[in-house]
Design a protein around this nucleic acid. Sequence first.
DNA 1: GCGCCGAATTATCAAATGTTAGCGCGCTCT
DNA 2: AGAGCGCGCTAACATTTGATAATTCGGCGC
Lengths: 239, 239
Amino acid sequence: MLESLFLNLGQHDSLSDEEQSLLGDLMAGERSFAAGQDIVASGSRPVYSTLILDGLAARYKVLADGGRQFSSLQVPGDFVDLYAFLLKTMDHGVIALSPCRVILADHSKLRSITERAPHLTRLLWLDTLIDGAIHREWIVAMGRRSKVSHLAHLFCELFVRLQVVKRTNGMSFHLPVSQAELADVLGLSVVHMNRVISALRNSGVIAWANHTVTILDWRKLQQIAEFDPTYLSMTREPR
Amino acid sequence: MLESLFLNLGQHDSLSDEEQSLLGDLMAGERSFAAGQDIVASGSRPVYSTLILDGLAARYKVLADGGRQFSSLQVPGDFVDLYAFLLKTMDHGVIALSPCRVILADHSKLRSITERAPHLTRLLWLDTLIDGAIHREWIVAMGRRSKVSHLAHLFCELFVRLQVVKRTNGMSFHLPVSQAELADVLGLSVVHMNRVISALRNSGVIAWANHTVTILDWRKLQQIAEFDPTYLSMTREPR
DNA sequence: GCGCCGAATTATCAAATGTTAGCGCGCTCT
DNA sequence: AGAGCGCGCTAACATTTGATAATTCGGCGC
């Protein structure tokens, strides 16, 4: 059941049997959320952190004028709020964009891992660092890429991340979001989001129908996006 | 000399004498950089992490069309690349925006801290988590705030962060950046950056001259920015 | 099969933002 | 003192993006 987690953490450095069993002991208490439900509420002080087993979730913040901005997308094998273990108070919410199955990690158990399993601690720390690296990449995309390039970059990133946890199907992956939700990722109006999607479609590099994105020309998509996966740290080396 | 670091880490939880001495032992090898110099090069694999003692630095990425985007600003007491300890390869650069005095932390020593000092490890981890929280706040600002509000938010954030490390002077702080550099923070053209700055000035909440920002109306600035400092985790509690 | 509803798409116009160019100020170098 | 230069600032115009509204499309229940 924790296969996604093992694939995710294990891609960066090898996980010993003991570490796998520590993780098995850590993760307990499966839950499900319907699309649109909050997985973690803004302002709360969680006593456990949440790992996605299945589904798509997003961190978000809502401003006074009602505008919503997603600050990340979370796929199976991702901790959505591992940082709450140390940050204590959630300054934003996490919402299920599709039906989500999750499993919980008690903060007290996480703490004892930091006391007793330094290497596993470093891997969990690394997981949050990659989170940060993705944030930085998003900032660059929002600030200086064209909107089409930004969208292309997002698709590249999602494809690679989903591939790691075996959720791609050839060059396709499931993307259960509406154009309005995607607009809240890129920070655009729905109308303009639609224009940007049309442009990327018309360039012939992707197809998107029935909540499924298909990459028709991976090389060209990468070029449009200037995608360099270095920031995802997908090499296995001692950490 | 490490006062800024102690102020920074110590604001979240108390640092024992032993931890302070571990940090003193960790940080060694002072260096200086002129404004405009790279402190850490993109693509490099650092063997130490860098702490700012004095000056202003920024993480950045340059795109193929020459556009530059800063993904963070770093003030005294900040590690600019603590994450390189685990991420290994820099996927972006770090530049000195003003003359910078820094001090280094050997990755081998950092590693031994994770093996022997769990609480200090958690505080260092926390430091990188706050980094991530700031990134998320920037994403929200870039996506859904008006440009004036974004700028106001940035000033609120800088003021509060600088206050922690005692680098404010009343309601003023030193901001040694040109409007062009600030444009690379917000992701705007220089011309529009100038318009936005003028608008915020004209609203009477800030003054900015001689590289010094003065907050004339803190309450109103916060309102414009919808600034809520929760994400900076400025409460001292067990971590 | 029919009608309803949410989502996608298009059209039109308005506002925000970018581009290019130029001016002026204050600084430094000679 | 004069020239050069970086930087702030403004103007004029082009392009991108947003707002509003209408139309189409597709799934789903009756």
